[in-house]
Write a protein that binds this DNA or RNA. Structure first.
Lengths: 193, 193
DNA sequence: AAAATAAGGAACCGATCAGTACAATACACA
DNA sequence: TGTGTATTGTACTGATCGGTTCCTTATTTT
């Protein structure tokens, strides 16, 4: 006995993700979101409570999409050498920039922004980055050069690679020149080889 | 025959830097700045034109202070091994967090924020990061393990270390747990050793 | 067809934003 | 001690922020 939604919630979250990805959490105004999502204020607040709740939903969506696809690469048996899997992720980040995507990583942008003062957002960001870190650990287990390292040393290396990833994607967002990115990725390759 | 300023411009910029460092460019409201700098709207606008101009002045000040002191370490003959100089910078960033400073690096926060849409800020950020990069190159020249690398390879490694630095300081700002930071720094040490 | 329910949409809310205008103030010089 | 001038501080501007209210419209169930 209720009028059903004329928009699909998942589609709306996907569209909201695009807006937040481009403008960041604070940079995305409500009008930006409404236009990008194709709905009006009433519908948005009825469906998503408020901006921050929507953003948390978007972060979940981002994890189940961008992060999980990265993790899939890191755990992919199609690439036998785990170090190659890691490099696939890094070169992918580089390629995104050369192909015109300078939005970086939503998690990294959130890390530098609202994570600094909002615990829930900080927690969601940590969770996403932690998933990536675990993926890197799996990849290291499948790398001849690294498989014999202690778990602790592997974990520490994974933490370093996460920091490297965050730095790279933040540089991309800051429009640092692509040669710098290219060099950085290349050096990661040298380090892992 | 003019009434002289009752505040010192450099002091005011220093105080503004503290505010921007804590809150970021967009997160620092004019009332925040006025309170932190100890002046009123009229004085601020007369002396610094507007918020963005003030921020560019602050970035200059930051370079001449935080960045230059980092570069000084990287070029310091007191630490003969250049790799040790680099590690001093990284462990310094880690120690800052353990000592309660979670503000990260003003340049890195600006990179993830206004650099994405403002060319002047992006340029100032690139300049500061470039100075650090050059310092790292000098240090690598003084590292037995790296001094024989080609200039190109040294530069690429420096680019990677800049990305690493940005990632670390962004993690600090996002309040990622200190063990992760510690591990990442430790792994940088292993890589450079 | 009527009743119940929720989506849709627009007008509106107080708060806050960066920036401005102007009068009061304090200093330097004569 | 008066006069000119730049600084200072307050009040204000218009725009925009996130969020709410409420009426209309559409749809499902009885």
């Amino acid at each position: 006995m209720a009028r059903p939604r004329t928009f699909n919630t998942d589609d709306a979250v996907e569209k909201a993700m695009q807006v937040f990805w481009t403008h960041g959490y604070e940079g995305a105004s409500l009008p930006d979101l409404l236009e990008g999502m194709g709905l009006t204020r009433g519908s948005l607040y009825k469906a998503f409570t408020d901006k921050k709740t929507l953003f948390l939903k978007v972060l979940e969506h981002y994890e189940g999409q961008a992060v999980d696809s990265g993790v899939a690469v890191l755990e992919s048996a199609d690439i036998p050498n785990g170090a190659d899997r890691i490099m696939t992720v890094f070169t992918g980040a580089y390629r995104a920039v050369t192909e015109g995507d300078q939005r970086g990583c939503l998690l990294c942008t959130a890390a530098a922004g609202p994570s600094t003062y909002d615990d829930e957002i900080a927690h969601a960001v940590s969770k996403g980055l932690g998933a990536l870190r675990d993926g890197i650990c799996v990849a290291l287990q499948a790398s001849p050069k690294h498989e014999d390292m202690s778990d602790e040393a592997q974990g520490a290396l994974a933490d370093m690679l996460i920091a490297q990833y965050m730095g790279l994607r933040t540089m991309a967002r800051a429009r640092i020149d692509t040669n710098t990115l290219r060099n950085a990725v290349r050096s990661v390759g040298v380090m892992l080889a």
